[in-house]
């Protein structure tokens, strides 16, 4: 992907210090940005975490989802329907994986791909994202390393840091502008 004739700007790199445990840092930052987060010990307990979130808000168990390999191994209880497709108007909740998460900013990193339609990240009211603790990287730059090691940049790569918001009316922050009203992170020890 990188064109070899192009170098970067000179100068030593400065990065914000991210001390200590990345997962703890990530958790603090993304919840401060308005996301809800629940930590769970294994893939097997993901359905429980998702159900609790949906129950509290009174949403159905119909999910549009990305084609995470991990999701296939989970035994979804009766009542759950998972549809792997692009999101459409009227879909309440999406369930997706992430390509990474960033401790520095408390961001999820999602990428458009065949198994991960981009509309899942933006169209539904609730975006539920499953993040493995091993996916939490320290700095934003670590994501670029990951991209370079793999197949290069996807069509769309997005850092998601909290639910959709606007401050365009009287500079008052209001959640739920055009994107998801809620961002729920299920953090799995894996």
């Amino acid at each position: 992907m990188p064109s070899e004739s192009i170098g970067g700007a000179p100068g030593t790199a400065v990065r914000p210090a991210v001390d200590g445990d990345c997962v703890a840092h990530f958790t603090r930052r993304i919840t401060a940005a308005g996301a809800s987060l629940v930590r769970t010990e294994s893939f097997a307990t993901i359905p429980e975490a998702v159900r609790a979130f949906l129950d509290e808000l009174g949403f159905s168990y119909n999910l549009v989802c990305s084609g995470e390999r991990a999701f296939d191994t989970i035994a979804w209880p009766a009542g759950f329907t998972l549809a792997l497709r692009t999101a459409a108007d009227g879909d309440h909740s999406s369930l997706t994986g992430v390509v990474a998460a960033v401790a520095e900013t408390g961001s999820l990193v999602v990428a458009a791909a065949h198994h991960s339609p981009n509309t899942l990240h933006f169209l539904p009211e609730n975006h539920i994202a499953v993040v493995r603790t091993s996916q939490v990287l320290r700095h934003l730059e670590d994501v670029w390393r990951l991209m370079r090691e793999h197949s290069g940049m996807p069509r769309a790569l997005t850092f998601i840091t909290g639910p959709s918001r606007t401050a365009d009316v009287e500079q008052t922050i209001q959640i739920g502008a055009h994107g998801p009203r809620r961002l729920h992170v299920v953090l799995v020890d894996a």
């Binding site: 930052r29 940005a33 497709r85 692009t86 520095e104 900013t105 408390g106 961001s107 458009a112 791909a113 065949h114 339609p117 981009n118 509309t119 940049m153 996807p154 069509r155 769309a156 790569l157 997005t158 850092f159 998601i160 840091t161 909290g162 639910p163 959709s164 918001r165 401050a167 994107g179």
Partner: peptide, 24 residues
Amino acid sequence: ATGQAMTAYTSLLTGPRRADDRDG
């Protein structure tokens, strides 16, 4: 700008939809 370390969405868009993308 807004005192945010990162805005809610920061996207890098690199070309049109790929051969097997489902949207875009």
